[in-house]
Design a binder for these strands. Structure first.
Length: 423
RNA sequence: GGAGAGAUGGCCGAGUGGUCGAAGGCGCACGCCUGGAAAGUGUGUAACCGCCAAAAGUGGUUCAUGGGUUCGAAUCCCAUUCUCUCCGCCA
């Protein structure tokens, strides 16, 4: 969430910048400021009353200790009176804080000034494009046919044991999947990321910390018996490792990589997008997460963009980078680059990575801060990116590398798969 | 699932009603000592919210969380959550 200080000191700017996200925040912002005024007023009153009764209690204590307890009677009555008035002020303060927080969590993050305006994915800005779209042979087919032909992924079996969106990988399909995970992890390790194996379930506090709760709770699988959610991405547990943490400048940058399965309900997604591997309820992903000082977060975003670019080059997939416009960028993000690979048989661009800078938005929710050299608290900035999400990468590899004699394996993966052809 | 113990500052750990935001130690920071380091030694070392233009200062809150008793609670009472140990079950 945005900090109160930012909202108070930059009222008009906050409103103007949220317009780029297609949000009119005027009413919310003014309500927050008004509630904060009430809060301050009530607190001042409460503080003054508490100060008085603290002083009286001290006096009474001295009287009792010097054996003059009977002289304290009048003072005691005074504190009772003060206390009830203080309770009233406190109640008013707490009411204002609660209402204020309810509104605060509804405000999205401010988009970076360079984020293009726009209302939908059509207005996103293509900032980079690379690679050659392969010429497929005459009998080339989409991946959902290939996986059947070579018996490497079985969607029907998944339907049987779970339901739609939970495919079963088998044989060389399973091994290719595992190879991709290891390849992505090894690449990140080589780049200096420290590996984490996170829990796959999270509590509500973690979901709130990274911004999935309260607004996106319908997108996560929920286990009521234990009040836990299945992770939609490793971002949630990994970033929340730093919830309620105060970092030293020497801890920065924090750089983590984590493989995890990801679970998404995808409520409301139907149609052609869900065909084959394009959209699943359970999928694998390797995620990179960084925590930096405010001045380093945008250079870090570029660094992460470069890193993901390198992965796609090594896999030999044609891709483009899209800078999301205000209308398409997520609630929590200040700037996001999406990476899309071209899946040659579907003839579609598929999103395989999303790299975002959240600035202090998640850190504010999580109480993640940095204590600088002079002892001052400054907000931390958090970033993350997929590096990479597996199913669509797999789809693109299968489609783009298909030949009449079988599916070739990209060179970089052969040491991991142990085979160079699926036939 | 059954029984018991516990939750205090960055960490360990003392503290059973009054100047306790909290002894002591560790860690950390700065200084002294040293040719340099270690050891030794001295000083300092919580967060949050107000007031103040700001620094200084100052008021308030915080000893798991929420409530209660009391003039006064880390300390007493109740509830909740979590952790640990033993037993049971189990990859």
């Amino acid at each position: 969430m945005l900090s109160l200080q930012v909202i108070r000191e930059n009222r008009q700017e906050v409103i103007d910048r949220l317009k780029i996200k297609q949000v009119d925040a005027t009413e919310f912002v003014d309500r927050i400021i008004r509630l904060d005024d009430i809060r301050r007023e009530s607190q001042q009153e409460m503080d003054a009353l508490n100060a008085q009764s603290n002083a009286l209690a001290k006096e009474i204590g001295i009287l009792f200790q010097s054996g003059k307890g009977d002289e304290a009677k009048g003072l005691k009555e005074q504190t009772v009176e003060l206390k009830s008035r203080s309770k009233e002020a406190e109640a008013s303060m707490e009411k204002a804080v609660k209402e204020m927080e309810e509104v605060m969590v509804l405000l999205p993050n401010l988009p970076h000034p360079s984020v293009p305006p726009g209302t939908s994915a059509d207005d996103n800005e293509i900032v980079f494009e690379e690679g050659i779209i392969p010429e497929l042979h005459g009998e080339a087919v989409p991946h959902w046919d290939l996986v059947q032909q070579y018996r490497i992924i079985d969607f029907a079996l998944g339907n049987k044991i779970t339901g739609a969106g939970f495919p079963v990988y088998q044989g060389k399909g399973a091994r290719l999947q595992r190879a991709l995970i290891n390849f992505f992890l090894d690449q990140a390790l080589e780049d200096g990321y420290a590996e984490i194996q996170p829990p796959y379930m999270i509590n509500a506090a973690s979901g709130f910390g990274t911004g999935q709760l309260p607004d996106k709770d319908g997108q996560m699988y929920y286990v009521p018996e234990d009040d836990l959610y299945l992770i939609p991405t490793a971002e949630v547990p990994v970033t929340n490792l730093y919830r309620d943490v105060i970092l030293k400048p020497s801890d920065l940058p924090v750089r983590h990589v984590a493989y995890s399965a990801c679970f998404r309900r995808e409520a409301g997604s139907y149609g052609k997008d869900v065909r084959g591997l394009n959209r699943l309820h359970q999928f694998d992903k390797v995620e990179i997460v960084q925590i930096t000082s405010p001045e380093n977060s945008y250079p870090t975003l570029e660094e992460m963009r470069k890193y993901v670019t390198g992965l796609l080059r090594k896999l030999g997939l044609p891709f483009r980078i899209v800078k999301l416009c205000g209308g398409d960028i997520s609630f929590t993000s200040a700037m996001t680059y999406d990476f899309e690979v071209f899946s040659a048989a579907q003839k579609r661009w598929l999103e395989v990575s999303s790299v975002s800078n959240f600035e202090a938005f998640q850190a504010n929710r999580m109480k993640l801060r940095i204590k600088d050299e002079s002892g001052k608290m400054i907000p931390a900035h958090t970033l993350n990116g997929s590096a990479l999400a597996l199913p669509r990468i797999l789809a693109a590899i299968l489609e783009n590398y298909q030949t009449p004699g079988g599916i070739r394996i990209p060179d970089v993966l052969i040491p991991y798969t142990g085979f160079d052809l699926i036939s």
